[in-house]
Design a protein around this nucleic acid. Sequence first.
DNA 1: GGAACACATGGAACTTCGCCATTTTATCTA
DNA 2: TAGATAAAATGGCGAAGTTCCATGTGTTCC
Lengths: 296, 296
Amino acid sequence: MELRHFIYFITVAEELHFGRAATRLQMTQPPLSKQIQQFEEEIGVALFKRNKRHVELTTAGEFFLPEAREVVAQVHQAVDTAQRAHRGEFGRLVIGFVGSATYDILPSIIREYRRIFPHVSIKLHELSTPDQVAALLGDRIDIGLLHPPVGSSLIETTPIERGYAALSLPKNHPLAKKEKIQIEDLRDVPFILASRDIWPGLYDEFLSLFKNVDFTPKIVQEATEYQMVVGLVSAGIGVGVVPATAEKLFNLEVVYRDIDHYPLKAVLSLAYLKRNTNPALKNFVSLTKRICSDER
Amino acid sequence: MELRHFIYFITVAEELHFGRAATRLQMTQPPLSKQIQQFEEEIGVALFKRNKRHVELTTAGEFFLPEAREVVAQVHQAVDTAQRAHRGEFGRLVIGFVGSATYDILPSIIREYRRIFPHVSIKLHELSTPDQVAALLGDRIDIGLLHPPVGSSLIETTPIERGYAALSLPKNHPLAKKEKIQIEDLRDVPFILASRDIWPGLYDEFLSLFKNVDFTPKIVQEATEYQMVVGLVSAGIGVGVVPATAEKLFNLEVVYRDIDHYPLKAVLSLAYLKRNTNPALKNFVSLTKRICSDER
DNA sequence: GGAACACATGGAACTTCGCCATTTTATCTA
DNA sequence: TAGATAAAATGGCGAAGTTCCATGTGTTCC
């Protein structure tokens, strides 16, 4: 019993004429007759009443016809489902992200992706960059939104946001009066940073600013997230270093200032395993790239 | 693309091992590998990720698996439906019947048939015997419940009720006092009969009773149904001739008597076209025969 | 009653499916 | 590091099944 038999049966049932049915099936009449006979024998049911001149369905054939059509429809649906999944229209996507990504880029990407691929289920996990790298290598997430570098040749990364970091100061801080802060102004200033785990690139870049001056910054406090940095700043503990997108965490007690001539690059990257074959991943990556290039 | 491919895919997906899957399919591994490859090529979707040592489903394969199982299930359901219809468990049955059959045998047969074959839809038409014969020959009904003879070699008949007819008299009629009526008592009695169309056999048999006596019965009225005969009798118009089962049409004004030594046979038969292949018909006929033999 | 139509039958050719033997590659172990 | 083992892929061959062509047979229509 093969699919062929069902298709042959349906065609003959529609034409009630072996010759015409054979033409529609692009074959000749004798093999069609034989296949139908074999099929009837195999299932033990006469599907047609034939009297050398006229063909008609038996009662069993009439009941079989809609079921046979259902078989063919189900076959098409199955193949279609596989092809859609292959194109990434069905699937699952597990996304890791650093907390700072939620301030800006992540929600708009997710929103757009959901609109275009409504049948892909998305699972989000807030993870630090090193945890994301481990999760990627352990196949627990498909995509990471993290701060480079990741330090693994198995992982592909593309920058999606080339933003900058800024200093956040209590609004009554003396330096807050200046439009641009000079690096010399930062001598003896107490700093509050997110811990190096959160964003090693930014942490290291901040420290490297001071290679060309004769002092090192005084880090008085490390926080586990940027929201906490801003909180400590507004409490007057010190001056914070946060990505510029954190300005969206409105806090009236805090102002943001750049350091003159010393931009702090704050790159957010998309990261995924090179060997990951999840079709939904490709779409997510290309969609993200498109959105980011549109914004420029 | 054939059913085989779906079954092969499901088995490999369940085993995730071409060798074991091949064993389960009672074949060797190489042709199985080849068939899966061809199938993947045909639908344009990689269903398995294989790396010479391990096999696993791709995302598309995971989405395809339940759909493929659905295909196989639908195939089985389709074949099962055809086989059930072939056995007469699904179907339609159009039944013609004479009015007198409703008094006794028909309801119990229908009730029992419905219980055993709940998925056969039954359509009932009250028709006279000649109309039933025409309807049978014109393929408008599958079965007739009628009074023989039918007079067509295309039609098969089997008696299902060998009942008797009786005389019905107004309860104050002189003859009503007698337990058994002698045929001589019927001289000059006005008779009421159902018209010959209704039951030619009974009509003719009644007339033939009088071949051996020197008078013919006086038929004063013909009615179009037995209920009407009984009604006319109770109105005192005359003496009726009705099937014994008509006694169930309770009427306190009427009594029933037999004619001594002259039983009036009242045969009800099942009739159907010999060439009718409706499987539900066979079951109906054999069930009816069983019920009738049980009752004896 | 003959012609035309339509399904069935029989035999030949081609396709393809499955088996066997072998190769390739990945993993495990010494 | 290298050999052993396991598992999928590859290639050639035989057999089975499918298709085509030619023909047979029973119906229907003129």
